[in-house]
């Protein structure tokens, strides 16, 4: 019986290998197009000089903007002879960029630089446990380093980090509640949840003496988005560590484009303690990743409050002036590598 089973299993393995080849050259591309168009875009690019990985901050504009160009389009104006290819997906983060970076065909493409959007909020509990995470994880299944047929089957089985929205929300709340907030000075709140709760009790009053609910909600939201201490245990930090190592190993010049946050509103709504944390986290990133093969482009304080599109929410969506400021800063940093190609566009 054992011999019979071994023979049948061998046949099965052979069939699977053959079917994997069949799938790879027939349906796989179409599945990639549906589930992971970004992966297909990375692979199908012909010799781009620079890849730009980002999320919605790259292309979101204010309706009243006369120039609606994305950050990459604006940055490209400084380098007319350089092909900068944006690979963009909303709510993406380092965990996804890590996989994208590995998809760059190092043999075919002579990629000169890789720019990766580094969004401070992507390190916070709300983004780590975002309800969009399941969708993002799903989009990565087909791109794993396994035979494509196996990846496809895993996708059907939903065999990935497939938590429900409720489970993710629970994890987010627990992180806010259980992660201590550390300050080098006396501070009354022990965690993000404590601070948020205190703020939610009613901090703002209108001129007529009633609570300014909207302002209060916004202040709470700022706390939840930025009140955390970055350390090497943060999963996104681990992801960025891997990206930096991978790029160093493969001699890809890496630029981490730290996006601007609304420091003005954080200060006016919540106070200097929150700004302290934001800047402390920025310093952590700059110190950790500024290496010979990696440049951290610090845009954190570059955009003023009114130049953020969303005035009652925390996003990295900028009006033209903001996008241009970031594109210019990006171009100035790239200039060190592409001295000859740089043109003073503005």
């Amino acid at each position: 019986m054992t011999k019979k089973i071994i023979i049948k299993l061998s046949c099965l393995v052979t069939i699977l290998v053959a079917l994997n080849v069949l799938y790879k050259y027939t349906l796989f591309q179409n599945d990639l197009k549906t589930k992971s168009p970004e992966a297909l875009a990375i692979k199908s690019q012909d010799l781009p000089d620079v890849y730009f990985f980002g999320e919605s901050s790259n292309a979101t504009y204010r309706d009243s903007d006369s120039i609606k160009s994305s950050i990459t389009e604006l940055a490209s104006m400084f380098f007319p002879t350089i092909k900068i290819v944006p690979i963009v997906k909303p709510a993406t983060h380092a965990g996804i960029y890590k996989s994208w970076a590995r998809m760059i065909d190092l043999k075919k493409n002579k990629t000169k630089a890789l720019i990766i959007t580094l969004n401070l909020r992507s390190f916070d509990a709300a983004w780590i446990h975002s309800k969009l995470e399941t969708q993002l994880q799903e989009s990565m299944v087909l791109t794993q380093d396994h035979p494509p047929l196996l990846n496809r089957f895993q996708l059907s089985l939903q065999a990935f980090d497939n938590k429900t929205e409720k489970q993710r929300e629970q994890m987010m709340l627990e992180q806010w509640k259980n992660t201590p907030l550390l300050f080098p000075f006396a501070f009354p709140f022990k965690s993000t949840a404590d601070w948020d709760y205190a703020m939610a009790q009613g901090h703002y009053k209108k001129s007529d003496g009633t609570w300014d609910k909207e302002k209060n909600i916004l202040a709470c939201h700022y706390i939840k988005a930025y009140a955390f201490n970055l350390n090497d245990q943060n999963p996104r930090v681990k992801d960025f560590d891997e990206i930096v190592m991978y790029c160093a190993k493969n001699r890809i010049n890496l630029y981490l484009n730290l996006m601007a946050e609304n420091i003005d509103y954080a200060d006016s709504l919540v106070g200097k303690e929150l700004v302290f944390l934001m800047k402390q986290n920025r310093d952590f990133i700059v110190k950790r990743y500024s290496k010979r093969t990696c440049v951290v482009i610090d845009n954190l304080d570059l955009v003023r409050g009114k130049d953020f599109i969303d005035q009652n929410w925390t996003t990295e969506h900028y009006a033209y002036k903001g996008r241009m400021a970031i594109a210019k800063n990006l171009a100035l940093n790239l200039k060190k590598q592409f001295v000859k190609e740089y043109k003073d566009a503005y």
Partner: peptide, 20 residues
């Protein structure tokens, strides 16, 4: 029989629904 298994395996692995 094995030809049928092959078709079934391919349909299962490559064509199964992608939402569970």
């Amino acid at each position: 029989r094995w030809a049928i298994y092959t078709v079934l395996i391919f349909c299962l692995f490559a064509l199964a629904g992608t939402q569970k």
